Amino acid sequence: MEELIFLGTGAAMNTDCFTTALLLRDGLAGHHFLMDTGGGNGLLHRFRQAQVPAEAITDVFISHHHTDHILGAPWLMRLSGHGRQRHPDWPPLRIYGSPALLETLMTICRPILPSAVLDLVGSHIRLIPIEDGRTYPIGPWQVTFFDIGAQKVEQYGCQVRLQTGEDLVYLGDEPLREPGLPYAQGADYLIHEAYIAQPGQGRFAPKSIGHSTVQEAAENARAAGAKHLVLFHSGLDAGPARRQSYMSTARDYFKGPISAPNDMDSLFFDHLPKETD
């Protein structure tokens, strides 16, 4: 059984939930693939809530260098580095990102991580530069990374071939645009950001900060022929009624299954997709 755990579903300034972190787990073999790391060491608490041992986190993808996606990574590096020092059989940590992203990560880490941890970068802690359109074997999955054509900063998404034969596509935190369309086309699961449910809600206009409304996300999924739409990365003013508001709005524009997960919700991939209530 494969499971996608939404460790964090919020945008950067959302104080009602943790920031962006999604954990794909293969329950049979115990493989884990983390997509984005949230905004700090709250990520470690989320692992504990999910009952995921620290040493199980071996493969990490960071879509871009904004605070709510990258700042959990130094904590993972510290955790893995100290783990290796105390336990020689602690598994290596592999971090995937664009060359510019990996350099930014090291710029952050050099002044804040202990030298004993930094000394392990390149050996135990492995920074793996990704290329647009290239496929990498990660655990039991084939993962293709692609430049999403973001407007604010360089950003990558990924297409994961699940063991069910289905495709899971993660678009990072900007809308689906032309560069990402070949990967999103016909996706079994399309994870698309949706900053607010309706235009005029919240204190920011989504387009002004490179984000979408639920309507725009649903229209993008419909145009791509996606089968199951997953809405996440909600803004500061989403509030506790977010799930029902998101799904009710999305149903007007997208007729397939829709999920609007809260923190620590999961999708399971051992069965046909079903709509989340």
Rank of each mutant, 00 (worst) to 15 (best):
S80D: 09
T135A: 07
D26R: 06
V117P: 01
T249R: 10
V160P: 00
I196T: 09
A116Y: 10
A73Y: 02
V117Q: 04
L236M: 15
T249N: 01
W141S: 00
Q142A: 14
A221E: 05
L105P: 05
L44P: 02
T19V: 06
G30P: 05
D119R: 14
G8I: 12
G180A: 07
N41S: 09
H82F: 14
R161K: 15
P74T: 02
P129E: 05
M13H: 13
A100V: 11
N220G: 04
G133H: 11
R78L: 13
A73S: 11
F61C: 07
Y156L: 09
H192I: 14
A11S: 12
V160T: 11
D59E: 10
G172K: 04
Q163A: 07
A205C: 11
E216H: 11
W141D: 00
F47C: 03
I258L: 12
G10A: 15
F204E: 15
V214N: 05
E174R: 01
G180H: 05
T164I: 04
G97N: 03
Q155K: 01
G202R: 04
D36R: 04
D188V: 09
H66W: 04
D26Y: 07
H87Y: 09
D167T: 10
K255C: 10
D119T: 09
A12N: 02
A21S: 14
L34F: 06
E174W: 03
T9L: 08
G210Q: 08
A56P: 01
M247E: 01
I108N: 01
D119F: 09
D252I: 06
A100R: 13
S80Q: 13
A250E: 02
G235T: 11
D59W: 03
I138M: 09
R203V: 07
A21H: 05
G210D: 13
I112T: 08
Q159S: 14
E216R: 13
Y246V: 04
D132Q: 10
R84I: 08
W141A: 00
F61A: 12
G27K: 14
R25N: 07
P240W: 11
R243V: 13
H65M: 14
A73D: 03
P199K: 04
S115H: 12
L231S: 01
G8P: 07
I196P: 02
D36K: 00
Q163H: 12
P175M: 06
G27W: 01
L190Y: 04
Q49D: 15
M264E: 06
E193I: 15
R177F: 02
R46M: 08
W141C: 01
Q85L: 08
D59K: 04
H64L: 07
V143W: 06
P92T: 00
L79A: 07
H124T: 08
G256R: 03
A12W: 06
G8R: 14
